[in-house]
Amino acid sequence: MYAGHFAAGLALKARKPEAPTWALLVGTGLLDILFGPFVALGIERATVTPGQPPGFRLDFIDWSHSLAMSLVWSVAYAALFWKRGRDIAAVLGFAVFSHFLLDLPMHPADLALWPGSAVHLGFGLWHTPYYWWFELACIALGCGYYWARARRLRSFGGHAAWACAVVLALHVMNAPWLSSGR
């Protein structure tokens, strides 16, 4: 999942408008943001699989994406914002964990319980024809909620429709008929 994580960030913004938008978006994407350097450093491994959706295979992502490490990153990220108040720290911590929750239906069984665990989770929507549509449904829900709350509260989302359009455009760019997928 890619754009769906941004939609989750916007939905959390709508739920807690006091939370900084950039921090919510970084939070929802944090596990993927960590994955890049971890692969570069050899801590995690992925293999490119051209023509086979989603275009790569995640061989070892336990340090960024396992259930236990997702919780660790969530708590660590929340701690960074503790001074902004408990509620804001909590929603930012949940933003990080939402990544695991949204990846769970999409990934094949490559989400370990903890680093090195033999048990791996993932329902494998990526390997079905429905993965792009499932993510689209998540985006519709998240962005719809954000857009409606932005119109009602008027304390954020000055260009809410454009923000949603950017998320949707990112998802369209990721469509299987436009690319080999991610």
């Binding site: 978006l25 890049g36 008027r154 260009h159 809410a160 454009w162 923000a163």
Partner: peptide
């Protein structure tokens, strides 16, 4: 799953679009 670059542009852009709406000037009193 994406590399770092896939977040560098969208996050500032979406955050910028999310900024609070400007309140327009108050209409002059009648």
């Amino acid at each position: 799953m994406l590399c770092l670059a896939s977040f560098v542009v969208p996050i500032p852009l979406i955050a910028w679009l999310d900024r609070a709406p400007k309140s327009g000037p108050k209409p002059p009193p009648l």
